[in-house]
């Protein structure tokens, strides 16, 4: 069994009467990638910052590694790497100088040239931070988080604001770290990011953990059914005759969605019914349920709302 590298128990953080984090507990095993997913204001960043030692928890316990170190202890700081939600570095230092400055703060350092190469920043190594693009800044931020060759990496919404290409490049880097058996905690409000990168997902809403598990476990928890969506030519709303399909929903704008435990049989049934009633089905799609469906099922809201 893998070693537990982080244990957070009953974390609470209040700002006045607002419960930013409300009784959050989880464990993290060595080599695991954990995604904390939730909409803006769910308490993801506050949870992470308490773990990183940047905020004090009002109550609860955080213990790192087998020794049970507290977040503020130097033994923790030396072994973790943090990419904050908004990275701000010294504007008038170059990429290389920034990495040298941060590297100098740790006992163990990865050679700066190696980091520059890993993050594909060779062409920008002499460029001042103030002149970097958003994507380049994020790459620098990740490079800085890796400057001490950390065992445990925290990435707080690492791809927010990046274009799809830069986001994909960032994901590839995280997957490469995963292959090196790094333990990673990332927060995100992109369900695709959590689905693509994480071994385990925690879903947070209003400061609480509302669900957790692997992607399969979470989907199974809401029934695990697939969805068949389609349009009916000439119809904008659901005809009453289709009432024989109890799990059919009108999602608006002429698009209907059928929750299906057996796609082939339900599709056959649907085509048969359409033929009998002279209805022409159009734009038929089948999709697997995703984290948005899980979030919708649990909270009644869409994650993207």
């Amino acid at each position: 069994m893998s070693k537990i590298v982080l244990k957070a128990s009953h974390l609470k953080k209040y700002y006045g009467s607002t419960k930013a984090v409300d009784d959050v507990s989880f464990e993290l095993c060595e080599g695991e990638v954990l995604a904390i997913l939730g909409p803006n204001g769910a308490g993801k960043t506050t949870t992470l910052e308490m773990i990183e030692g940047l905020r004090n928890a009002d109550s609860g316990l955080i213990a790192f590694f087998e020794e049970g170190f507290a977040p503020s202890q130097v033994q923790v700081k030396e072994r973790i790497g943090v990419q904050l939600q908004s990275s701000s570095f010294f504007r008038y230092l170059s990429v290389r100088e920034t990495l040298q400055l941060f590297g100098g703060l740790y006992a163990k350092q990865v050679p700066v040239s190696e980091l520059i190469s890993t993050m594909s920043l060779e062409e920008k190594e002499k460029t001042l931070v103030k002149n970097l693009s958003g994507g380049q800044l994020q790459r620098l931020a990740l490079a800085v988080a890796l400057v001490n060759d950390p065992l445990l990496i925290f990435l707080d919404e690492p791809t927010t604001g990046l274009d799809p290409q830069a986001r994909r490049a960032h994901w590839d880097t995280v997957l490469a770290l995963k292959k090196q058996d790094k333990t990673i905690v990332l927060t995100t409000h992109y369900m695709e990011e959590a689905e693509y990168l994480a071994d385990r997902i925690i879903i947070m809403d209003h400061g609480k953990i509302v669900a957790s598990g692997t992607l399969e476990e979470l989907i199974a928890s809401i029934g695990g059914k697939d969805y068949i969506s389609f349009r009916i030519q000439g119809l904008e709303s659901l005809p009453s005759a289709l009432g024989t399909f109890p799990e059919l929903k009108d999602t608006g704008a002429g698009l209907f969605e059928l929750s299906s435990g057996d796609v082939s049989s339900d599709l056959a049934r649907l085509f048969e019914y359409a033929a009998l009633n002279n209805l022409r089905l159009d734009d038929i799609r089948i999709r697997r349920p995703d984290l948005d469906d899980v979030f919708l099922h649990i909270t009644g809201r869409k994650l993207r709302d």
Partner: peptide, 16 residues
């Protein structure tokens, strides 16, 4: 500036 821009926050995740 370094407090509000988050530079200090980043620095305090290190052993500094």
């Amino acid at each position: 500036f370094y407090r509000s821009s988050g530079t200090n926050k980043k620095l305090f995740t290190t052993p500094l």
